[in-house]
Amino acid sequence: MTNRKIEALQEAAAHKAKESAERVEKALERMIKQGQVISFKSVAQTANVSTAYLYKQEDLRSRIETLRDQQKQRPKSKQAPPASDNSKSVIISTLREENKKLRAEIEGLRRVNEGLAGRVYHLQGAEELAERLKSENAELKKQLDECRRQSPPPQKDDPKVTSIEKKRTKKSGGSDSIKSELDALKIKISTTLSKLIEQVPEETVLKAIDTLKEALSTTKVRNPAGFLAEAIRNTWIPNEGYEEKAELDIFKEWFPVARSKRLVIASRKIEGVLHVCTPEGEWISFGEMVVQYPLESLKLKKVD
C-alpha cells in the first residue's frame, strides 16, 4: 500500500513538471507574438512558475536567455506595441484556469500525504510496541532463570517430586482453559502450535484466540490454526471495543464535513486519543471538537 502511494506521488510530481514546462512554452509563444519583454521574471509571472524553476531547467533557461539577448539587440523603435486589453483578458483567464488545476493537484497531494503520515505513525507505534514486548520478555526470562537457580534440586528417591521439565511436558498445549477454547474452535494442537503456546504467557494466547474468534465472526478463515499461530507470534489483540468503533464511525462522517467548512485540515492519534488539527496548527481532541461542532449543526454552518 505504501509503495503504491509513493508511486502516485511520483506520477503526480512528473505530471506537474510536464504541465509547468508546457505553460512556459505557451507563455513564451504568447510573449513573442505580442512583443512583450522577455526575462526570467516576466516569463515566470506569465507562466505562473518560479524563477528558480526556470533557472533549473537547462533547455528553458537557454531559450529564455537567447530570446532575451535577441530582444536587446533589436532597435527600440521596432518593438511591438503593448498587449491589447483583449489579449490581457485572455492571459488572465488562462492563468485562472491553470491556478484552479494547481489547487486541485495540491489538494490531491495533501490527501495522499495525510494518508502516508497516518501509515508512518501507525508503523512507528507498532515498532515501539514490539521493542517494549522484547524488553519485557527479556526481563521475564531473566527472572525465570533466577528462580531456577534459587530453587533446590528435586530428590531422586522421592516419587512425589516432579521436575520442572516433566511438569512442562504434562502441560504441553497450554492450560485447561486454552485447551477448552481450542476444542471449541475445533483446532488440533500441532507440534508448532504447542511450542508457541509454551513460549508465551497464557494471556497472550487467550488474546490471540479472541482475535481469531473476531475474525471468524466477520469473514471466512481458511486456516484457523495458521491464523492463530501468527496471532500468537505477533501478539495480535482484538479490536478495542464498540466504543472506539462507534467513535470512528462518527469521525468518518464528521471529518469530511468539518474539513469542507475549513475547521480542520488533518487528524491523528496522540497517546491513543484521536485528535484533529485546526487551520491554525492546533491539535484538539476529537471529543472536544464534536461537542463544540455537532454534525447536524456543522452541516448547516456556512463557510467563512
Rank of each mutant, 00 (worst) to 15 (best):
K41A: 14
A12D: 11
Q57P: 00
L116P: 08
K16L: 03
V24E: 05
I92E: 13
N86F: 14
K26C: 00
R23W: 01
K78D: 11
Q73T: 00
S62H: 08
L9M: 14
K41W: 01
A21G: 07
L67Y: 08
E22I: 00
E98F: 05
S84V: 05
A8V: 06
A44L: 10
E107W: 03
Q34T: 07
S39N: 09
E114K: 05
L60V: 06
M31S: 06
E114Y: 06
G115K: 08
A83V: 11
R63E: 10
S50H: 09
K72Y: 08
A17S: 14
R110I: 00
R61Q: 10
V24K: 07
V49H: 07
K26F: 05
Q70H: 09
H15Y: 03
S50C: 01
A8Q: 13
Y55S: 10
F40T: 02
A44F: 14
E98M: 09
P75Y: 02
A8G: 04
L95R: 11
A27G: 14
A21D: 05
S42W: 08
I32H: 06
Y53N: 01
E98R: 04
E107G: 05
K78T: 15
L28A: 05
R103L: 05
Q70D: 13
Q10V: 13
E29T: 13
E29M: 08
S84C: 11
R74I: 01
R111L: 13
A52F: 07
V49G: 03
E107S: 07
M31Q: 04
A80F: 10
L60K: 04
L95E: 06
D85R: 13
D59H: 13
D69F: 04
K76S: 08
G115Q: 11
P75H: 10
M31H: 02
Q36T: 03
R68Q: 15
E19P: 01
A12I: 03
E58Y: 05
S20E: 10
Q79K: 12
L67V: 02
A17Q: 15
V49M: 06
K56I: 00
T66W: 01
D85H: 09
Y55W: 12
S84Q: 06
K26L: 08
N48F: 07
D59T: 13
